[in-house]
Amino acid sequence: MLEKRIVVCLDVRDGKTTKGVKFKGNVDIGDPVEMARRYYEDGVDELVFYDITASAERRGIMREVVERVAAEIFIPFCVGGGIGSVEDMRAMLLAGAEKVSVNTHAVLHPEIIDAGARVFGNQCIVLGVDALRDNEMPSGYRVVIHGGRTHTERDLLQWVLEAENRGAGEVVLNSIDADGTQDGYELTCTRMVSEAVNVPVVASGGAGTPEHLVAVLGEGKADAALIASMVHFGGYTVPQIKRALAAAGVPVREHVKP
């Protein structure tokens, strides 16, 4: 049986892992390579690295981080943040990433999805999307960009379907309403998107307890759940979360100690 994936997300700024709340105020919490190795040894199924380095000239640091991660961990990982061209994608994939994710840039220039999928295959192209609850939109959710600071006129569901059509092979759906709250995932939104698309949906934003993951992987119909704070700050470990999921009947990969 296909298992539900636990994905740990690391925001990386100037080569250091950082964590912010609702995109305001960030604190450095460690070396991304060291943290990636620890999560790998703890049995995480996948990792995502978001480069939130502000200046373009410091992007080379991220490539080095990706190369070092690739040499040490042997599970899939995705890199996002600041990817604005097929060349940016190529650099990260050649550095060893399995997938790249596009968010703001794809909303502004959707053809990057087609171009990336054509060159690297759909399985390499992940659509990251930030959703904000908004009853004025047909699906009830508005697409926001620039980390939530800019509202767009796009409807969430329409945009995700368009991106799938263009060749996105996976969707990381982040709820801006839930992000950083640790109060639980946005279940309605996740379920709506997961039922509408034929590619895997990774739920993001709001994880605080293993019960939140049980809910989003069950009721929310997500294929994978992204977590950050709940493991970065030591409240929970990946094996603990997996045990809780298994006990609740969610199929997860058993922990394998390297």
Binding site: M1, L2, E3, K4, Q123, G169, E170, N198, P200, D223
Partner: peptide, 9 residues
């Protein structure tokens, strides 16, 4: 069951 089959099995 989505296709492609992506993940751990």
């Amino acid at each position: 069951r989505k296709v492609p089959h992506i993940g751990w099995n």
